[in-house]
Amino acid sequence: MAHHERHLLHRSGWLRAAVLGANDGIISTASLLMGVAAAGANHQALLMTGIAGLVAGALSMAAGEYVSVSSQTDIEQADLAREAEELQTNPDSELRELTAIYTQRGLSPALAAQVAQALSEHDSLAAHARDELGLHDMNQAQPLQAALASAFAFSSGAALPLITAWLAPHAQAQSWFTVSTLPFLALLGIVAADTGGASRWKSVSRVVLWGALAMAATALIGHWFGVTPV
């Protein structure tokens, strides 16, 4: 009977961008709205602030992810090109280098040399990319995927406190933000933990704690610098 294992590493690229985007969308938008509400803004100003925060944040997250992951891709491609050149100009040295890597991982020198030779004959660049540079197809950087996942996740997260701002009685907006946002963050932590195979408790406690601190800080700033709307 065939043995199948379910690994989750292939999700690391988009999962990181999605969790970061949703977490930032909820926390930054809720905190922004909390601070503006604490400063005494009216209901219309509160909604316009939330919409502006959603649009600006989603575009900023997408641009940041695309630029960041593109830079990572450029580095990976440069390393691969350098490795391909070395394999062309000095294949014996590269073979010894690969052998040394396998020896350090626990193979006997003779077996390491045999494995290095066999893998080099099959696809030397792939062997060096995987075992020397640590590059794998499953965690290869994908800029567009990361940008889209981040923008969509941020918008989804930011929509939650924005809907709360729309539905909440204006006088009770801050309380509504607190009561609604923390469960949203807890749910995000559970989803992230289940998708990535991590501990629910650790994931939930991280996002809830930092979310609560962010909202408390912006609410305090709003009270300090509060203005009476004209």
Rank of each mutant, 00 (worst) to 15 (best):
M1N: 12
A2F: 12
E5C: 01
H7Y: 08
L8S: 11
R11W: 13
L15V: 14
L15T: 09
L15Y: 02
R16F: 08
V19C: 01
L20E: 01
T29D: 07
A30R: 04
Q44F: 11
A45D: 15
L47T: 12
L47H: 04
M48Y: 11
I51N: 05
A52N: 05
L59K: 05
M61F: 07
M61S: 01
A62R: 00
A62C: 10
G64C: 05
E65K: 05
Y66N: 03
Q72E: 15
T73Y: 02
T73V: 09
E76L: 04
A81C: 03
R82E: 09
R82Y: 08
E85H: 12
L87F: 09
T89P: 00
N90Y: 07
N90E: 09
P91W: 10
D92S: 14
E94L: 00
L95D: 02
L95N: 07
L98A: 05
A100L: 13
T103V: 10
R105A: 11
P109L: 08
L111Q: 13
Q114Y: 09
V115F: 05
A116T: 06
L125E: 09
H128C: 09
G134P: 06
M138G: 00
M138P: 00
N139V: 13
Q140I: 00
Q145G: 13
Q145W: 07
A149G: 11
A149Q: 10
S150R: 02
S150F: 01
S150L: 02
A151T: 06
F152L: 15
S156F: 13
G157A: 11
A158S: 13
P161F: 06
L162G: 05
L162Q: 08
S175L: 15
F177M: 12
F177D: 00
V179N: 07
F184I: 08
L185M: 11
A186E: 04
G189T: 04
G189Q: 02
A192T: 12
T195R: 04
G196V: 10
V204N: 02
V208Q: 04
A212Q: 05
L213E: 05
A217R: 00
T218F: 11
G226N: 07
V227L: 13
V227T: 13
P229R: 07
